[in-house]
Amino acid sequence: MFSAQQYVKATSLQQALELNQKRSSAILGGGCWMRLGKKNYATLIDLSGLGLDTIEETPEEIVLGAMVTLRQLETSPVLAAAFGPLFARMTEHIVGVQFRNCATLGGSVVSRFGFSDIITGLLALDCEVELVQKGRVSLADYVQMPYDRDVLARVILKKNGRRAWYESFRNTETDLPVLNCAVSCLNGSARVVVGARPARAVMQEFGQMPSEQRLQEMLDKTEFGSNMRAGAEYRRQLAGVLCRRAIEQVKGDAECR
């Protein structure tokens, strides 16, 4: 468990950003992962008073506040209408309902953990993050950026008709994934995301839904590693299996044929 000297419930995103400039500060998400650390923070910054816990729909976009919980993602009718079972599939294995009622989208995105189900799933969509200082950045760029003192306010999904499917493999149903992947398609072109390698997710665009051979080429140049959950070779095997399954699912979607 971490320790903290001070807690501030931010009254504006600007204030949160200012407070967060100190290295001893931290933005408090759901706290579920943060508590695994033993750091000592001078200031915890809470965004829960800023109305960032909503899922809002505009004609072009769906805007997710950073404090939206994983359970909200899982059960949102708005997200289900736009992306089918994608969000339910990428959240339903995460520990349990109580955990998902605590853990936040912002926490998952900012942490950019290699094993993240959320990052892998979101990368399959046309997704941007809204940072208080830097403004809108595509998620694909954001995951490559070093950790800094900016504050994540929102995650924005383009409602462009992209269809996506999510697969993960876990040793037990609610464990961290051994491997995850997401495949999506838009206007005939396709995107494949492979995460929990166990390192951070990688993605590749394809002009059309990748053939067996094109997929294999992608995986051949993807690095896989070993940790206590599985070895690299098995992960490579799983990546092929899960990607093929996801591709089949997406192909089966009327919008993608």
Partner: peptide
């Protein structure tokens, strides 16, 4: 007997 052992064994 983990999934990994089985999958790799079958392979």
């Amino acid at each position: 007997i983990t999934a990994e052992k089985i999958a790799m064994g079958l392979l």
